[in-house]
Simulated scan of single mutants.
Amino acid sequence: MTKLVHQSTSEAESYRPLASQERVEEIKELRQTMTSLGGGEEGEQLHPFLGLTLRVPSQVMTPCPVSPMLGGAVFAEVRPGDRVLDMGTGSGSLALIAAKKGADVVAVDLNPHAVAAARANAELNGVADRVESRESDVFDSVEGRFDLIVFNPPFQWFAATDYADVAGTDAGYQALTRFFREARAHLTEKGRMILFFSTMGDVEYFEKLVADEGFEHKVVFSTTQPVFDVPVEFTVHRLS
């Protein structure tokens, strides 16, 4: 796979987690396990997802077993006619769910392979007229305001090794921090956000970003699932 040049190892190494040292060591062990297993299958894979059909290339993260929880939250939140931003769209699954419910969606990702996949999947699932896909580093290529912003951010703070890895880790949480600092300027007056996070990352830092920006915050879904025999809590957050 193509090496990723956007992420800095020094940013990752200089990050100081707010999570307990015990949890940090557990997260690092999970990271080492995932890295040792390498990427998934090469080539394009076909994945069903909440009534959608997704074609996912090897350079893009596939939906995981808990992804339907986030997809369901997005479906419940979207209102017909909403203008929606899907940040870090990946294969485009959440953008397609919003479009199927009658929203007009801008789907962005740092990974050019993800942008192409989201565009192709919008065509495949009959919503190409409602989904615009473009490459963007956080909000760099995003204009205007949105009724709903959806973001499934990388959970971890390490430097990504390739484009497939960038969906799971964000060096020093540079992108996540930028997102929170800039998000309110891209929301309409009554705009809201749906975000995903987990204890595979520094939840305490995520919660600090929420508090620092003054968002009203509610956990709308939560589940605990084993990841390589380590119990991990996954949560869907509604912010307004």
Score class of each variant (00 low, 15 high):
residue 1 M to C: 02
residue 100 K to S: 11
residue 213 E to I: 04
residue 127 V to T: 13
residue 132 E to Q: 13
residue 211 A to W: 14
residue 180 F to V: 02
residue 153 P to W: 13
residue 156 Q to T: 12
residue 38 G to V: 01
residue 193 M to S: 05
residue 93 S to Y: 05
residue 44 E to G: 03
residue 205 Y to F: 15
residue 160 A to E: 04
residue 196 F to D: 05
residue 193 M to F: 08
residue 96 L to P: 02
residue 154 P to I: 11
residue 41 E to Y: 04
residue 174 Q to K: 13
residue 84 V to L: 12
residue 231 P to K: 08
residue 52 L to R: 03
residue 240 S to T: 12
residue 27 I to D: 05
residue 2 T to C: 06
residue 155 F to T: 00
residue 139 F to R: 10
residue 4 L to P: 05
residue 26 E to H: 03
residue 88 G to A: 04
residue 47 H to E: 11
residue 25 E to L: 08
residue 116 A to G: 05
residue 122 A to R: 06
residue 104 D to K: 14
residue 12 A to N: 08
residue 82 D to T: 02
residue 189 E to T: 11
residue 71 G to E: 02
residue 109 D to C: 04
residue 52 L to I: 03
residue 29 E to V: 00
residue 164 A to P: 00
residue 181 R to Q: 14
residue 112 P to W: 07
residue 100 K to Y: 02
residue 126 G to V: 06
residue 137 D to Q: 09
residue 82 D to C: 04
residue 239 L to E: 09
residue 217 H to C: 11
residue 25 E to H: 09
residue 108 V to L: 08
residue 218 K to E: 15
residue 51 G to K: 03
residue 41 E to H: 08
residue 166 V to H: 07
residue 80 P to H: 00
residue 122 A to L: 06
residue 130 R to D: 04
residue 73 A to Q: 10
residue 161 T to P: 00
residue 200 M to I: 06
residue 158 F to Y: 15
residue 193 M to R: 07
residue 61 M to K: 01
residue 93 S to A: 15
residue 202 D to G: 06
residue 138 V to A: 06
residue 72 G to P: 00
residue 185 A to D: 15
residue 157 W to V: 01
residue 154 P to L: 09
residue 35 T to M: 12
residue 65 P to L: 10
